[in-house]
Computed example of a mutant assay.
Amino acid sequence: MEKLIEEGFFSDRDLNCAETILHAANEVHGWNMSHDALLLSAGFGGGVGGQELLCGALTGGVMALGKLFVRDRGHESDLIKTITKDYFALFEKEMGHIDCAPLKEDHRTEKEGCRKVILASARAIDQIVEQYRNELA
């Protein structure tokens, strides 16, 4: 299975962090989600709509993990909760935070924006997919 981190998706697109992750997952996993469906991630950039709360790269990742691991609806099992918890832990271990404001302060640059944060999210997603491969929907 191709990995998000290897896709090279994170370069010349004018997308926020949440959009970048969901668009990359859509491409890598061949979901063929419509443009309208992908727009659902737009409001999560900037730490949920620019409030600098939960990181957009993480929220985009949660959307992607839901698509990967939920067969019908979230309440069908606790798997998505477990996976999300593990995903957040991997990301926080690498980046030190899960909220946008401190992530931007520590990792955002003028030249690359939040690329480092987006790539950390992609690495965490790839690790989760590998770890839970047998549970894929």
Rank of each mutant, 00 (worst) to 15 (best):
G45H: 06
E6V: 02
T20D: 05
H97I: 01
V62W: 13
S77M: 07
C17G: 04
A18K: 02
E105D: 14
D106S: 12
I125P: 03
G61Q: 11
L103F: 09
S77I: 08
C55I: 12
L54A: 12
K116W: 03
I80V: 11
D86W: 04
L65G: 05
T109V: 01
A101D: 06
D78M: 13
D99T: 11
R73T: 09
N32V: 00
V117N: 11
A37P: 00
L4S: 06
E94V: 14
L4R: 05
V70S: 08
A24E: 04
D12T: 10
D106M: 12
M95N: 12
Q131E: 15
E6C: 07
C55T: 10
H35A: 13
S41E: 07
E76H: 07
A137Y: 04
S11F: 10
K116T: 13
F9R: 01
H75Q: 09
V48L: 15
G66K: 04
H97V: 01
D14K: 15
M63Q: 10
V129C: 11
M1Y: 10
G50K: 07
K85E: 14
H75W: 11
F9E: 01
T59C: 14
Y132M: 02
G56R: 02
G96S: 12
I128A: 03
T59H: 03
S121W: 08
L90S: 09
A24T: 04
A64Q: 09
E2W: 02
N134I: 00
I5S: 14
S77P: 04
M1V: 11
K104E: 11
H35L: 09
T84K: 03
A42V: 11
F91H: 10
A18Q: 03
I118W: 05
H35M: 06
M33I: 00
T109R: 06
A122S: 15
K93P: 01
D72P: 00
Q51S: 14
F88K: 10
I98P: 01
L22F: 15
L119V: 14
A89H: 11
E92F: 03
C100V: 08
L15Y: 14
G8H: 07
H75P: 01
H75C: 06
